[in-house]
Design a protein around this nucleic acid. Sequence first.
DNA 1: TAATTTATACCGACTAGTTGGTATAACATG
DNA 2: CATGTTATACCAACTAGTCGGTATAAATTA
Lengths: 210, 210
Amino acid sequence: MPRDGTITRTRILDATLALAMEKGLAATSLDEIIAKTGITKGAFFYHFKNKNELAITLVRRFAEQDHEIYKTATARVETLSRDPLQQVLLLCGLGAELFKEVPENPGCLMASYCYQGDLWSEEARQVCEVALKEWADWIEAKLKQAAKKNPPAVPVDLRQVAEMFQVIFEGAFILARTYNQPDIIARQVLAYRDMLEALFKPAAKPRRSR
Amino acid sequence: MPRDGTITRTRILDATLALAMEKGLAATSLDEIIAKTGITKGAFFYHFKNKNELAITLVRRFAEQDHEIYKTATARVETLSRDPLQQVLLLCGLGAELFKEVPENPGCLMASYCYQGDLWSEEARQVCEVALKEWADWIEAKLKQAAKKNPPAVPVDLRQVAEMFQVIFEGAFILARTYNQPDIIARQVLAYRDMLEALFKPAAKPRRSR
DNA sequence: TAATTTATACCGACTAGTTGGTATAACATG
DNA sequence: CATGTTATACCAACTAGTCGGTATAAATTA
């Protein structure tokens, strides 16, 4: 076989991701991508038939990587603790740890896409939806188990509380950019964790004081 | 004096806002804006010296409107209840109400901007930062008052909890688009409210069960 | 009050450069 | 030499922005 094209392909995707995070894919020209990758137009169009295909390939790869993180993170917290609530709290801790020190401008490709109609094809939307849902499903299941053990302090829609995990991330990315303060991401996730803890804190039973 | 130009100016801004929400301002050409407004290039460049000036004018107007909402909403909840925690909870209720039935594709111009580097000038960033901060400041103050009355169920950074209000909105916008399910915004805000309530729920005092 | 001036508001053809995309030939490697 | 990979040259459409000119109506003047 002739030389390996997958290297070039990966480099194109990496360059595109960086540019998309920085300035949005819609505002990024192919010439920029090509320049950043260090190739030529011919090479680019050999690997991708157009910009749109690049876009959905990129989001697909993003979703795959997200899936990997999901698998390892959930597996890890499930070995770290046997208690479902603790597992969720630990997951938050891991999430905060991940964003403790990220020098680069943090953000989410999916969020970037959904504010740029051109790229937001139904296809891309579904890829994102699937990627997001698996996290929410896992957390929801854990919270329901936790609720069985001891009910939440107030009646609450646990599906929403589970989905809030990603809401926090997506929202925190935006605030981090607006405040120019990347550490807000970790702090928000930790605040979410603390509120979860409060929600499931067993009501002080009416025994006499300790 | 000739006919009133502010009408045209406003129509340009309205059209631009709609297009920016739908597909992002970076991906929107002046020709589209002109077509949607129903004017010509000449008229556009009479009112705005370039696209960038349009962008920051738009975000400025957005921030002003946000400020108005802030003022009326906080004033309203402060008359509805005297208790600081209740005021915050009510504010969430109002927020949820606002997004109960919004037919159009909901979103935030600031979020849109910060994923499109071209528009994300330092100037625009500061406008957004100020707009966001006033909400967080108000909520934080209220929560601190509430905490004085009775401490939160777990130790928690109240500044983060306050900022979470907007984190929820920004994040929910993105999930609403990804899930193609606009009602997620209201439901998320309500879930946040419920978690706040749990956080400040007075620990069941060790009296005998009534 | 009628004619003239002046400033604002708008028009639409034009340009210089950029865009995504194509055609085709060269090169590498098994 | 056959196949996969990359380079060069090019194009038509579109981009933001310019420019000379026109329409409108209030203010000024005769």
